[in-house]
Design a protein around this nucleic acid. Structure first.
Lengths: 356, 356
DNA sequence: TCGATTTTTGTAATCGATTACATCTTGTGA
DNA sequence: TCACAAGATGTAATCGATTACAAAAATCGA
């Protein structure tokens, strides 16, 4: 009996329901998709049969016929990064509300994985693509675009008048970070980078440099430490920092993780934060409020970003895009907490003594 | 021209390629799926036409015909939780290696969302389901199982002889946590729970209680603070802790976040960790190595868990399941770091004085 | 070179829904 | 009651691939 039921549920087709209700497949289909087109009596008859049989439409067949998959591909550089996880939440809420599913394309920081997802998109498994990464190569986006696939870029600045950008104001915020530090009296700066070569990193560094220039400083007034968007980048930066003679006092990290790694490492050598060195992060991850001291940082409106990005993609898919939606740039919020403060020692020599 | 190309790529079907190559659709299909079945000359001819036309098979049509979607549904309680993100990495690596896609079902801690994903699974959009949550209700799993859908449970203990479990040894590790603390001399304990009602929480608390009993203690020797798997649960627990007269000295938190929240809050009141209170976490998230002091915790083999879970599901889908694979229980590793230490004050009165 | 065997290719049914069009009902007004 | 419009339902083509089976071509031994 259990086995009977199994078969029954598994192999129920629209034709079976039609037979059960004594109507045609067309009528069953109409009842399910556009109930106003059938008489109440027929409607009830069919619904009864649907309920009895436990029929659920085969969505693959629906997709083939209607040419809509109701799926969206989201390409992200790395899922374990809480930043992307949070964006995904915003995307997911909006998309599932409208009945869309999400297929994830996790690059796991390996560029060579892109091709796989480009193929997946081109084989019409999805109605649209959300690009959370700046990595997808020009020919990848080009072929997707040529296939007429709606795409929204949610990393900084994909220069393509066919692809709308929904991004945060990375560059502006990075510029403000320097302004903020210089207004606290800092005159020597440090920049802890993100993954070299990524668009996001490029934007943030560009903003940092703009800020340096705007505050009246030049290339000789800052040092730059490179590495990916992870804790250990900050640790490595800290080790370089500790070896310096004239240490910078104002550090801007391109992500919170590296800021936290940096602070942890320098504190282990009795460098005080913020008395000896101020650190400002980027992203506003939840953990940044649980470090000691709590981290000054820029909060990205991640959930909103995901939400808006999904919304723009939906409009694109439905062809109801208005040009006003084309480029959205969301502002960041400075969370002024405890890792930044005014410069206490203007004289670097005395600073150095105090830290050892 | 650009528009021409767009149409060309977008609307290319197997029939078009067949015409271009001067063969039948059957031959094209064979070239693409089973090249050994056609002559070399024909093969080259067809491949040439494929390349020329930019043809990519419509995977929806393939799915309909072959009745395999090459997609797997992963139901997770909350994506922003780094634990699930890391499991997902393991799942993803294994699945994409075999050409499968992942559709994510993010419950975002809301149980009512399950129904949506159960429907999605039942409408044959996926070949199998990976359950990272203990929430899916009995009738949800039952209907999926009755539909003959392969399922693997990766939360603790779904009692169903049709559903293999691939889990970590939550209960054993929790028991060991108490043993570890009691061997350090602790005699009063605290338990910071995870989301009430979740299977994972139940397992961990059960293990904790077993440990209490095994060490010769009873219900009167520990306090229990409730809350979900988040930082603020630990903060709330700390506030209750701070108000206590006879404070416990050995705290076990069911997740690292709440352990971190707890430590942060008590340190703000000059309670020293581990001199005044030892704290041990659960999960082994990356952050736990960047707190001050670094957190003693159990590391879950998350990536491996995801990997093994995906592997078992693949075997299930292909019908090559061996009974030895049926139930996998992966061990956890105790990371002994700086938030745990021997009891310094056996006399609670003196302990209380020292902390204020 | 011929017939038997094997290999290659083609024809057409199939997967399970949707939907244009045709046909049949029902309802309305004279 | 009848003609006609509006509404409900049915028939069959369709989406784009795969694949069983049939047919054709290539290969081989005598």
């Amino acid at each position: 009996m259990s086995r009977e039921r199994w078969r029954a549920v598994k192999e129920m087709r629209i034709a079976d329901v039609a037979r059960l209700a004594g109507v045609s497949t067309a009528t069953v289909s109409r009842v399910l998709s556009d109930p106003d087109k059938v008489r109440q009596k027929t409607h009830d008859l069919v619904m009864e049969a649907v309920k009895r049989s436990g029929y659920i439409p085969n969505s693959t067949a629906q997709k083939l016929r209607t040419r809509r998959t109701m799926n969206v591909l989201v390409i992200a550089p790395r899922l374990t990064n809480p930043v992307f996880a949070e964006i995904l939440r915003g995307v997911d809420d909006e998309l599932t509300r409208l009945g869309y599913g999400i297929i994830i394309g996790n690059l796991d920081n390996r560029r060579e994985r892109e091709a796989r997802y480009v193929d997946l998109a081109l084989s019409r498994q999805v109605d649209g693509v959300l690009l959370l990464t700046g990595y997808v190569p020009e020919n990848g986006t080009r072929s997707m675009r040529e296939a007429g696939l709606p795409i929204v870029a949610m990393c900084a600045a994909i220069e393509d008048d066919k692809i709308p950008n929904v991004v945060v104001q990375d560059r502006e915020a990075s510029r403000r970070a320097v302004t903020f530090l210089s207004e606290l009296g800092h005159r020597r700066f440090g920049y802890i980078s993100g993954t070299p070569g990524s668009i996001i990193e490029a934007e943030r560094f560009a903003g940092f440099q703009e800020g340096i220039a705007a505050a009246g400083f030049g290339r000789e007034d800052f040092v730059r430490w490179e590495g990916p968007f992870v804790f250990s980048t900050g640790v490595a930066a800290a080790e370089a920092f500790l070896k310096m003679k004239d240490r910078p006092t104002g550090i801007f990290a391109a992500c919170d993780e590296s800021a936290i790694g940096f602070i942890k490492r320098v504190r282990a050598e009795r460098v005080r934060v913020p008395q000896d060195v101020s650190v400002i992060g980027f992203d506003g991850i939840e953990f940044a409020d649980y470090t000691e001291p709590t981290l000054t940082t820029f909060r990205q409106p991640l959930y909103e970003l995901g939400h808006v990005g999904a919304d723009v993609l939906m409009k694109l898919i439905r062809g109801e895009m208005k040009s006003a939606d084309w480029n959205v740039r969301l502002p960041l919020t400075l969370l002024e907490r405890d890792t930044t403060g005014p410069v206490l020692h203007k004289d670097y020599k005395s600073l150095r003594r105090s830290t050892l």
